[in-house]
């Protein structure tokens, strides 16, 4: 099956670009650290030399946490505002880094050069930013249209359901009605980037259009690849939860161990992100429309002399 071949080749190519995954991880970590350290400082000052945090080592202590939130919750509110700002920055950074990521994957020699990487990030950023705006607007339009169309229907289905089972099914149904088109839009955004890099396409609207055409033409392969990659991600999450639950964070040593495991998880997650791009690129390269080869007659003015 085309998507399985693309998946396997994509994994191989992502493995050959591990430094790329590490770079993405480093950016992700650097983005999260300021807020995390801000949280630490705020909480440390708020608790001061209280013994209350001791009870948080062995288990979640609702009383300690709730008393903290009741009396010091306002002090961590600024962190939430920072989170929103940083989330937006992470979107922009992701757009920026996608250019270098795809160009590294495109060049099959397996080498990774930071200089080339960032050069290509800059090269494609303008186009990718315009693609980000196009697909962002499409996503918002999707949400607005579905809310208008399905919102009232959902309310009525929930109100008229015989039991909460029916209401839950209605909610899931409407949720899928949003999630599936949204997933297709995000796939199209990826393929549009891939087309831009692979073909050095100058027109972003053209790239977007070609991306939609590609997905429609290779629907089952594209969706199959996407679902396979999602399964890989869910497996990773399940493995992490199992390990963290087993080890716990009840002593300085176990806290350090789980922290390392968390970071390994994040590295793996970056690797999966690279694998997404890699698999999609492989599928596109295998299935993309080939240019028609013109064969003319000897005296045709279109054939240039050797």
């Amino acid at each position: 099956m085309a998507f399985m071949r693309a998946f396997v080749t994509g994994v191989r190519r992502a493995n050959s670009a591990l430094r790329l995954a590490l770079l993405l991880y480093a950016v992700n970590l650097l983005l999260a650290i300021p807020i995390a350290l801000g949280f630490r400082a705020t909480v440390a000052v708020a608790f001061g030399r209280s013994t209350s945090p001791e009870s948080l080592i062995q288990r979640f202590d609702y009383t300690v946490v709730q008393d903290f939130m009741d009396h010091h919750g306002r002090e961590i509110e600024p962190l939430f505002r920072q989170l929103v700002g940083f989330a937006f920055v992470s979107m922009l950074l992701s757009t920026f880094l996608a250019g270098g990521t795809l160009s590294t994957l495109r060049d099959q020699n397996g080498g990774f050069s930071a200089e080339t990487f960032f050069r290509d990030c800059g090269k494609y950023f303008a186009r990718f930013f315009r693609l980000f705006l196009i697909f962002g607007i499409l996503l918002i339009l999707l949400a607005v249209v579905l809310s208008a169309g399905l919102g009232a229907a959902l309310t009525q289905m929930i109100d008229n359901a015989d039991s909460e089972v029916g209401a839950f099914a209605a909610f899931i149904g409407v949720g899928l009605a949003f999630v599936l088109p949204a997933m297709l839009l995000m796939m199209a955004a990826d393929y549009a980037k891939i087309i831009t890099v692979t073909n050095d396409a100058r027109s972003v609207t053209g790239a977007a259009r070609d991306a939609f055409r590609f997905i429609l033409k290779n629907f089952f392969s594209a969706v199959g690849l996407q679902l396979t990659l999602l399964v890989l991600l869910f497996l990773l999450v399940a493995v992490y939860w199992g390990i963290e639950g087993f080890i716990g964070m009840t002593s300085p040593l176990s806290i350090a161990v789980v922290f390392l495991i968390q970071q390994l998880f994040m590295i793996s997650r970056m690797w999966i992100r690279v694998t997404f791009f890699s698999g999609e690129m492989m599928l596109y390269e295998a299935q993309k429309p080939q240019p028609v080869r013109f064969v003319g007659w000897d005296d045709s003015p279109l054939i240039s002399p050797a």
């Binding site: 807020i35 992701s94 997650r269 992100r273």
Partner: peptide
């Protein structure tokens, strides 16, 4: 860890 996951998710949208 949760911040990293949130930013990774938003990065997917980007």
């Amino acid at each position: 860890f949760w911040l990293q996951n949130i930013f990774s998710l938003f990065g997917t949208i980007g």
